[in-house]
Amino acid sequence: MKILVPIKRVVDYNVRVQVKPSGSVDLDNVKMSMNPFDEIAVEEAIRLKEQNKAKEIIAISIGPAQASETIRTALAMGADKGILVQSPERLEPLNVAKILKAIADKEKPDLIILGKQAIDDDCNQTGQMLAALLNWPQGTFASKLELNGDSITVTREVDGGLQTLALKRPAIITTDLRLNEPRYATLPNIMKAKKKPIEQTTPESYGINPAPRLEILETLPPKEREGGVKVESIKELVEKLRSEAGIL
């Protein structure tokens, strides 16, 4: 069985981003890492391989040249090879899904596991769009995954409980936070990963124009939080809730 794992290079989850005066997010000298949900996807694929349920794992990243670092991280965790689709453009989920469809058509995987969303744009669309383009079943927000021959059982965390789905492969799985805890890449595996192949392509080689269709009009930082105040009495508290907070 072959698994594709699309991964995205994003601003590190712990970095507090700043908005530049020009109205875009300042990405100069900012720590970049693999999207945490994608890390969970890589880990799940590796676990399937360790259980002898998968043979090959291909990590795909679409983005700038430095996205190859992100692929190396996946290779160091245990993926077998990488595909870097180099594109300088800001990518929208539909374009990403189209590129991934083209790769899936070529690679013919049994499973595509990807993060439910990227933490930079929080779109939460790529997996679903890819399922539609490929016309494959999808198990989104997976918190548990079981493979039995051709059938896949996916447990999803939904409002008010758990939902269990049975899918037939090939299928799309998008990962939720509780699916697993990704491993650390060990030094010997990091060194081995340097020798694993990364295929370099472009969106154009799949016949896809990566130009965005949406225009970003404005980027604003969240409103600065004002410091708290101590009130002397309940009467004053109620008054402030009414006049300042507008809650009452």
Binding site: P36, Y184, T186, L187, M191
Partner: peptide, 23 residues
């Protein structure tokens, strides 16, 4: 990575991990 590899070759360390993200 380079330093740790050398230390591993010298049999001073058995294994090592590097933090791939701030978390």
């Amino acid at each position: 990575q380079a330093i740790l590899s050398e230390l591993m070759e010298k049999n001073l360390i058995k294994d090592a991990v590097l933090a791939s993200s701030e978390a």
